[in-house]
Write a protein that binds this DNA or RNA. Sequence first.
DNA 1: AGGCTATAGTTCTAAAATAGAACTGTCAAA
DNA 2: TTTGACAGTTCTATTTTAGAACTATAGCCT
Lengths: 154, 154
Amino acid sequence: MKWDTLDEEPCSLSRTVAVVGDRWTLLILRECFLRVRRFEGFQSSLQITRHLLSERLKKLVRFGILRRVPYSEAPKRYEYILTQKGLDLYPIIMAMVHWGDTHMGDERGRPMLHEHKTCGKLFDPVMVCSECGEVLHAKQVHVHAGPGRNEAVG
Amino acid sequence: MKWDTLDEEPCSLSRTVAVVGDRWTLLILRECFLRVRRFEGFQSSLQITRHLLSERLKKLVRFGILRRVPYSEAPKRYEYILTQKGLDLYPIIMAMVHWGDTHMGDERGRPMLHEHKTCGKLFDPVMVCSECGEVLHAKQVHVHAGPGRNEAVG
DNA sequence: AGGCTATAGTTCTAAAATAGAACTGTCAAA
DNA sequence: TTTGACAGTTCTATTTTAGAACTATAGCCT
């Protein structure tokens, strides 16, 4: 498995890792969900080098996660907005935040709390089965090869 | 924000990224969930270099994601087993697989299908609110600083 | 006009991480 | 005694990332 062709692997995890699985990308996306849109905004809140930020933004645009939208004509300036494909990354981010809350916390308590506007309560994200609605656990899931698989694995 | 102290940031996403956010780690964990336990097993299915595999397994053991358990006394041999902390990474992996299924697919269809043993059906993972059970969307969530936060962000 | 600031990058060198291959050590089986 | 399986370690070369300085456009102030 090669890193530069990871997005062509017959594995949806590999393909996702090809997009968000490198240094900084997930942190940039966190800022996007916190309504940051501009180069200087990302750079100052993340302390990422300008060079790498530029590379990562290009990559996210190339993969259709962000759109580069002009907000000033002279001088020409752009901001970066999440597409629907980008918004759909939200469950990944939330799953990671929840794991961090649960397993990487310290005595000071959670860094962030999440309020569900729909019900008005502070919540945790929970992953359930689309068919029966039960909470998912690794040991209750059986994996089958699907049509897009060309070799038998696991 | 520095990469070698990312696990000390007052942000649960950063802390999770510190553990699973580097090259190969999530793919190694995928193999763990597919019941791979041994060095040669990881190496042959991932084509990762032996050096890096060794590093990553050490790191996962250090963070308490995997346990290194002897399975042979002479010669001394070990296998790597997911701890509860490791098993709890399942929603992250599933969220990534689902996003890949949705947004990175090709004409051949899904590489893998998932069956929920509890209800017997093929399913997708869905992220819901722990309080009201509704499906979560980024725009319906409001973020507050929690007690573990020492600066105002977002 | 001349200089300051803001924004969004690009370009350079040095340091760190990763790739790729070969090597080590233990033991069992042929 | 030789071969093979397993679980690593060690080495050099390449790629990525860090860190800092530099470029370019334009508004605003004096």
